[in-house]
Design a protein around this nucleic acid. Structure first.
Length: 490
RNA sequence: CGGGGCGUAGCACAGCCUGGUAGUGCGCUCGGUUUGGGACCGAGAGGUCGGAUGUUCGAAUCAUCUCGCCCCGACCA
């Protein structure tokens, strides 16, 4: 293992890529644009999945699984949806290979051409609404609240580990409701679940808002999102929740009989978060020493490193450590004791910092004599020596404190990098530096497009809780009712 | 698909300009000493220099072609 990560301040991209690799989170695969999530990275993702899944269950949703392949004719049914995804679809055209008659290897068997091409799902609205046709007949079948954990494929031109990969893991919720109001409520509720998860589990503060028409999900009436600010001043869309209206129901001819015995189309929502959340987690908290994990998502919350000279010393230390481990486990804290003698303590310290373990204990002969232990916290890179007595309870509190502290730091960063601007010159200068920029916009796609072309900044969202405040558009000077958030984004 | 860069040991690179048959660091193996912030010394193993063709007595080095990867842009969660 080589020393030192690139500095965040010098080259954020390079730092990010190195960190992802060196902390054993993920690496590029042989298949271009795809990603191998390594065991350590996946264990963090699993913790996220579990927490999210519990939240979905608590809001009445059930898991199901739908096919990977979408017949082209399904995808075509909702026009806007089809158009939106057409440019980035992987297409299966054949179902068989055969030995190459001209030499070694295999060729696609031309006789095995599919009658209809299959699209590897870029999202599952089409397959799922085709299925819902058979599931929904009466108002009694509603609401239908389904979630699926799956992989999807979007053939992006440029990829980046966790943030944008050709194939990615996600969950997608697909619900059907009897009324518009209920569907809108669901859309907003699930956005709230995402915001709750981002803030309380990932310790990443987010802005909840709605997308402008041009950034809307293909086929949606309204797209809600949570936007987070990364340490390099760029925004990251971290989750979306769509109100789909009756578009998919109509396209797939899904109807139900309502309480008034009238035929009606159900109202739909869909919502998703992906492995991109891993990218958000990394970019929101990590530093030049490596990953910083919020205790609630750290696969290992506490690591204990023994420091000893002789083989006789180790058992004495281990004896003390065993008691600590027992106490920590009783409190539900995950702990690893690293008595591996292949590496020196200093190496281990650096390694666990790279991996983002929230709390580290070091215990040596000196501590045994004094009844103490050295305790280090990852978020502040600080350490102190404390009495062994009551250490487990202290750690329990400390983990809560760390969880809160990294959230507070991320929030402070966002606040310090959120600016209100009222002139075009100010806007351009500010966007160049980075951060969220609150500005008035005239509400037209033309202006939005021009601002993007000139500054690379996009409207991240129209915040849900923003205060109505009349003003004039920074670009066109036309009237505006409220400020929107601009930023350069991933 | 446009613009730039790079392919030499497991990894990171030097050597190329000015051609003479392969080098450094990390990692790996063995031995010893070490162990409270990425240990040290010694001895080893490991490469048809991305591929093809050409020029030459001789090519990692020069030329042409080709393949692959990375970065920046267009696309996007």
């Amino acid at each position: 293992m080589s020393k030192g990560l690139p500095k965040r301040s010098e080259n954020y991209s390079e730092w990010y890529n190195e960190l992802v690799k060196r902390a054993d989170l993920a690496e590029h695969s042989a298949v271009k644009g795809c990603m191998v999530i390594k065991p350590y990275g996946f264990s963090i993702w699993e913790k996220m999945q579990r927490a999210l899944d519990d939240m979905f269950k608590a809001t009445g949703h059930q898991n199901a699984y739908f096919p990977l392949f979408v017949p082209k004719s399904f995808l075509e049914k909702e026009e806007e949806h089809a158009e939106g995804f057409a440019k980035e679809c992987a297409v299966v055209t054949h179902y068989r290979l055969k030995a190459n008659p001209d030499g070694k290897g295999l060729i696609v068997d031309p006789d095995a051409k599919l009658q209809e091409e299959l699209i590897v799902r870029p999202t599952s609205e089409a397959v799922i609404w085709n299925t819902y046709k058979g599931w929904i007949q009466s108002w009694r079948d509603l609401p239908l609240l389904i979630n699926q954990w799956a992989n999807v494929v979007r053939w992006e031109m440029r990829t980046r580990l966790f943030l944008r990969t050709t194939e990615f893991l996600w969950q997608e919720g697909h619900t059907a409701h009897a009324t518009e109001a209920e569907a809108v409520e669901e859309t907003e509720k699930m956005l709230g679940v995402y915001a709750d998860f981002a803030e309380n589990w990932m310790a990443v503060p987010v802005i909840q808002g709605v997308k402008t028409a041009s950034e809307r999900f293909a086929g949606a009436i309204e797209t809600y999102c949570i936007e987070a600010l990364m340490q390099d001043g760029k925004a990251l869309q971290s989750g979306t929740s769509h109100f789909l209206g009756q578009n998919f129901a109509k396209s797939f001819d899904v109807k139900f009989v309502n309480k008034e015995n009238e035929l009606d189309f159900p109202w739909a929502t869909s919502w998703g978060v992906s492995t991109r959340l891993m990218g958000a987690l990394i970019m929101a908290h990590s530093d030049d020493n490596g990953l910083v994990l919020p205790p609630k998502l750290a696969p290992i919350q506490v690591v204990i490193v023994p420091i000893y000279r002789t083989d006789e010393d180790l058992p004495k230390i281990t004896e003390k450590v065993d008691k600590i481990i027992e106490d920590l486990k009783t409190l539900g804290i995950s702990v690893k004791y690293d008595a591996d003698d292949k590496y020196k303590p200093g190496f281990k310290f650096a390694e666990y910092e790279l991996k983002g373990i929230p709390v580290r204990l070091a215990i040596g002969m000196r501590d045994l004599e004094n009844g103490t232990v050295e305790i280090a916290r990852r978020d502040e890179l600080s350490k102190e020596t404390r009495p062994l007595e009551g250490i487990a309870d202290h750690i329990k509190n400390l983990l809560d404190e760390i969880q809160q502290n990294i959230y507070d730091k991320a929030l402070k960063f966002r606040e310090e990098n959120t600016f209100t601007v009222d002139s075009w010159e100010e806007f351009k200068a500010r966007i160049e530096i980075g951060g969220f920029v609150l500005a008035h916009w005239d509400g037209t796609a033309e202006t939005e497009e021009k601002i993007k072309a000139e500054t690379k900044a996009t409207i991240r969202c129209i915040p849900i809780n923003s205060i109505e405040q009349a003003g004039t558009c920074i670009y066109s000077g036309k009237e505006s009712a409220k400020r929107v958030i601009f930023a350069k984004a991933y």
